[in-house]
C-alpha cells in the first residue's frame, strides 16, 4: 500500500539538474564584489555626511561667535570654535573630565540595565495576560508622556540627594518605552508563523523562546532605543538637579561651568555629552540595521 505512487516521471539526475539550474537562475549572482574601489566608495559615502554635520556645527558656532551676541566681545565670554576645542583638549588632559565621564556612564549603564530588566519583565507579563493588558496599557502610555523632570521632586523627597533618586527617575522614564516595544513586538508576531510554530509542536515557553521573542526583536529594539533616549535625558536632568556631595559627574561639571560663567567650558562638556549620545545612538542603529538585514527587511537603497 505504501509505495503505490507513480514513479518520478524523469530519471532523477535530469530532474536534479533542472531544479538546480532553476535555483541558480533565480538566485542570480550572489557573490559580493570585493573590489577595493567599491569599498572605498562605500566608506566615503558613509563618512561624508558626518563630516558635513561636524562642519555645519562648527560653522554655526563660528557665526554665533562673530555675531557678538552677548555684545561684549572684549570680555571674552564667547569664544570661537578654535578656542573652544582647545578648551576641550585642555580638559581632556585632566583626570577630572574622565572621572566625570566614568561616573556618568556608570550611572547610565546601571539605570538603563535596571530599566531594561523591569521594562522587559513588565512587557512580557502584560503581553501574555490580556486583562492586565487592558488595565495597564493606558498607564504605560501615560507614563511615557510624563516629562521625567517632573518626577525629581518626588524622587528627591523619597530617596534624598542620592544616586538612587536619579536611577529611580531613569527607570520611570525608560521602562515604559521598553515594555511597550516588547508588547508591540508580541502583538505583531505574524499569525501564520504562530500557526506554523504550533503545528511543529512549539508550546508555552518554547513557543515564546523560539518564535514570539525572536519575532518581536525589531519592535523590542525600537523600544530599547527609545528607552535609552529617555534614560539619558533623565540622567542629565538628574545630574543637574540632584547634586550628590563628593561625586564628580558631567552634570556637576556643567553646573560648575554655569556657576563660573564659563561658557566655553560649558560648551566643552556639552560636546562630550553630545558625542556620548551619538555613539550610543550609532550602536543602536547598527544593531537595528543588522537585525533587519538578517531578516531581509532592508530596501535595496539601505543595503547598498
Amino acid at each position: 500500500m505504501a509505495s503505490t505512487k507513480t514513479p518520478p516521471s524523469r530519471d532523477a539526475t535530469s530532474e536534479n539538474s533542472a531544479i538546480a539550474g532553476l535555483d541558480s537562475l533565480e538566485l542570480g549572482d550572489l557573490t559580493k564584489s570585493r573590489d577595493p574601489a567599491r569599498i572605498a566608495r562605500k566608506a566615503w559615502s558613509a563618512t561624508w555626511p558626518k563630516l558635513l554635520a561636524i562642519g555645519l556645527v562648527l560653522g554655526a558656532w563660528q557665526l554665533f561667535y562673530l555675531s557678538n551676541f552677548h555684545g561684549d566681545s572684549d570680555t571674552g565670554l564667547v569664544e570661537g570654535p578654535g578656542a573652544g576645542l582647545a578648551n576641550l583638549w585642555d580638559q581632556a588632559q585632566h583626570a577630572q573630565l574622565w572621572q566625570a565621564i566614568g561616573t556618568t556612564i556608570r550611572t547610565a549603564v546601571i539605570g538603563y540595565l535596571l530599566a531594561m530588566l523591569i521594562g522587559s519583565v513588565i512587557g512580557a507579563i502584560v503581553s501574555r495576560i490580556p486583562p492586565l493588558r487592558a488595565a495597564t496599557g493606558s498607564i504605560i502610555s501615560g507614563l511615557q508622556t510624563m516629562p521625567s523632570i517632573a518626577w525629581f521632586p518626588f524622587a528627591i523627597i523619597l530617596f534624598g540627594t542620592t544616586e538612587a533618586a536619579i536611577l529611580f527617575v531613569m527607570v520611570l522614564g525608560a521602562a515604559p518605552s521598553i515594555a511597550n516595544g516588547l508588547i508591540t513586538g508580541v502583538d505583531y508576531t505574524p499569525p501564520l508563523l504562530l500557526r506554523a510554530g504550533r503545528t511543529m509542536g512549539l508550546r508555552g515557553i518554547s513557543l515564546y523562546r523560539h518564535l514570539i521573542l525572536p519575532a518581536s526583536l525589531p519592535a523590542y529594539l525600537a523600544g530599547l532605543k527609545q528607552g535609552w533616549a529617555f534614560a539619558w535625558r533623565s540622567l542629565m536632568a538628574g545630574q543637574l538637579l540632584v547634586i550628590i556631595v563628593g561625586s564628580l559627574s558631567l552634570g556637576i561639571l556643567l553646573n560648575n561651568a554655569q556657576d563660573n560663567q564659563d561658557l566655553t567650558g560649558a560648551i566643552s562638556i556639552m560636546i562630550v555629552i553630545l558625542v556620548i549620545g551619538i555613539v550610543v545612538d550609532a550602536i543602536f542603529s547598527k544593531t537595528d540595521l543588522a537585525v533587519r538585514r538578517r531578516r531581509g527587511l532592508l530596501t535595496d537603497a539601505q543595503t547598498a
Partner: peptide
C-alpha cells in the same frame, strides 16, 4: 503525526 504546509512558506525569517 500530522504536519501542515501553507501557501506561504511560513519560515522563520531570522533563521
Amino acid at each position: 503525526r500530522v504536519a501542515i504546509m501553507f501557501q506561504e512558506p511560513a519560515l522563520f525569517p531570522w533563521l
